[in-house]
Design a protein around this nucleic acid. Structure first.
Lengths: 232, 232, 232, 232
DNA sequence: GATGAATGAGAGTTCATTCAT
DNA sequence: AATGAATGAACTCTCATTCAT
């Protein structure tokens, strides 16, 4: 989630020697996110990105050697950022299932706040050619690994039983994905967060946890309490 | 599933006046499926499709007025065919949950047999531009509606309880999707069917059904028995 | 001018062995005139001509070996027809200046009645490539020759004096052309015939004939009296 | 008329930021004029224009967004230039009829010097599709308006009588056009200027002015004396 | 005679990338 | 650092023409 003072999602990519260069890189990545997200990877032209970044085509090529590289940087930086956010959320939880739960919720919150980012991950990365498909799937796997890690812990701690955590983590992620994709393209539910309210008990049950009758209301600033909702 | 004697998945799209024309349409759609699947929608050139179909560019345009229309026809015909297959499988089951289960399994079997088709639905339709994204999501929704229908019946019959069938059907579909996507791009598991063996109990549990300890082995010809595996 | 019972402007082109063939040729030429006139020579497709002629592309090519040939036939037949009409009108006059005058008026009447024909001669024949430009100019020259012939007679008879009939006939024709072109493209005057009422005294003066103060009103059926209007 | 040191008829179309760009625009317009003139609008390919301009297809498209726009720019710039030349010539005359006369002569001189330009205005603009037909007719009307303006003055000053200046100016223009067209396509008379020597007395007479028995010889640099030739 | 499927050359246009300034 | 002019390969689509049926 962007703080009001942030103007960009991207703060560092490589090793920009000068602050001005860093600024430009950020501006270009922001512009690229916007353009890729509304046009798609192939329809997006470098010219359009340059215009959106208020620079010139040559300017873009000074900072990125190819269009592909812009997309790759976008994907990498965003994924890293997202994963960091997920891990921060996880640390705020104590019980393993709550940690896995928080991971999903964080992804969902991030996408709800940043529709463009959501399009990037859910749609455009698949349409950008084979190279990026692999990369996207790796990102999927990274997130799934985080979930799995905590499901494994839950299993070890005896909180859940008889669960193939490999498939469970993947299934959880997939279920979430479908819900987000639907929201992205069809626009329902209006508030993506609402979907998770319905989805969570289902996921819990799938690993044998009966969710509490009613989940407490949750605001965006109340992430820290997420663990309370996933009691077993 | 294609019978060994079939060479094409496509048998009719429109109403060509000559039998030769019908043949060409089939050949073009087959070629397009192959090319779109290996190149992606945007990278695929009409020339390449023509070559693969052993015809000329003009020949392709005689049958389809635009590249988009080839893709659209491919998507529509394939979805129709897949849905028919799903409904046939469903009819062979009696218990509602088994019917929903059979739906998923049929999709999975179809994709396992037709990797190109799987790419079309899982990847290329998302990367082909906004028009097709909507169309794809509609296809998703069609399948999800089938699942939901039977979950609703199960709910009415008291087989399952306290389930938001709307989200459950979507979640099931999404979970399956992720598994298929992973198989498509990363190649694991080698046999897509194996993934479902692990996935099914999870899905069942998610609606409150405890799967039997061990699912009976299943061959492709044993679809009719699928219902036996989804006891409640 | 087409009689109400005529459905086509074209009655014979070459030597059609069978009446059915003749019919088809007529239909195709009519269709071609319509299509060339609304689309222009290059934009007109043989497909569109075939459709307008209610036949098939192959059908058109059976009767005409190339698109060019359709246009050429159209131009030749129409010019011949027009020239015949002009000569008929001339014969109805006795005084040479009246004959020249009748020639112009006939052309103008023909175009007023057949806007498509007018487009063909005034516009499309110029846009159809060098071959047709030469052909069109030859047609111009043919008409101009007719006018010149009668101006020469008028000169010999002493009706007009000190006139370069070569340039005068060309100038008359050009003046008429500009008026027709304006009417064709800009749509004014609404009745093309009105333009000639104003133009005629000017042309007469240009060869030294002072037109009568007021030209008598003229209807389309009153062509035979044209001579009365060009007194000297 | 081009001064010998000028290599291009086009000096400015829009506002290119770099001098190099302005140069290229000129080169492209020059090349386009040459190619359109020898091939016709539709037969001319952008590739050929690029080659003639010694640049690449992409280079052409950098400066002009479509083939149509090249043609439109060509037409607009040339018409503007021509009209300016006409108005300069008019200013050098004092008597109104001489002014009108000078207008025609200037057009004729310009075309005599620039056969390609003549083709553009007389032929290609009519064959380039409906859009340009309207534009060309507007250009015609602009020139005709200039002629009419001075004929009106002549009328007001009592130099000419009983003339419908609207039709007279159009007729003059049309007569000139036909002469130019003939020269363009058939090649006679060899010197276009000779045609005007014969045409002028005719036009004068058409508005009731008896031309002097013999027009004084006229060289291109003697335009300023044109007024002497148009006795009242 | 007629149909419509098929061909293939060629069009206009786009755009990632390069590079002189 | 940055600009924008230039390049050229590639693309989608059109259409006159041919020909098997």
């Amino acid at each position: 989630m962007l703080k009001p003072t942030e103007t960009s999602v991207f703060e560092m990519t490589e090793q920009p020697s000068q602050p001005r260069a860093l600024d430009r890189q950020r501006r270009i990545l922001d512009a690229a996110l916007a353009v890729f997200s509304r046009r798609g990877y192939r329809e997006a032209s470098v010219d359009e990105i340059a215009e959106e970044a208020e620079t010139s085509k040559g300017g873009v090529y000074f900072h990125f050697p190819a269009k592909q590289m812009i997309f790759r940087a976008l994907l990498d930086v965003s994924a890293k950022r997202l994963l960091e956010r997920v891990e921060a959320a996880i640390e705020r939880e104590t019980r393993p299932v709550a940690k896995a739960d928080a991971a999903l919720l964080t992804v969902l919150d991030a996408f709800a706040d940043h529709r463009a980012l959501a399009r990037l991950f859910m749609i455009e990365a698949l349409g950008a050619g084979g190279e990026f498909q692999e990369r996207l799937l790796q990102i999927h796997s990274d997130f799934i690994a985080v979930i799995k890690l905590h499901l494994d812990t839950a299993l070890a701690e005896g909180v859940i039983h008889d669960v193939d955590t490999d498939i469970a983590s993947r299934a959880w992620f997939g279920a979430l994905n479908e819900v987000i994709l639907h929201w992205l393209i069809k626009g329902t539910p209006a508030r993506l967060e609402d979907a998770y309210t319905a989805l969570r008990p289902l996921l819990m049950r799938s690993v044998g946890i009966e969710a509490p009758a009613a989940a407490p209301p949750r605001g965006r600033l109340a992430n820290g309490q997420a663990g309370d909702r996933a009691g077993h």
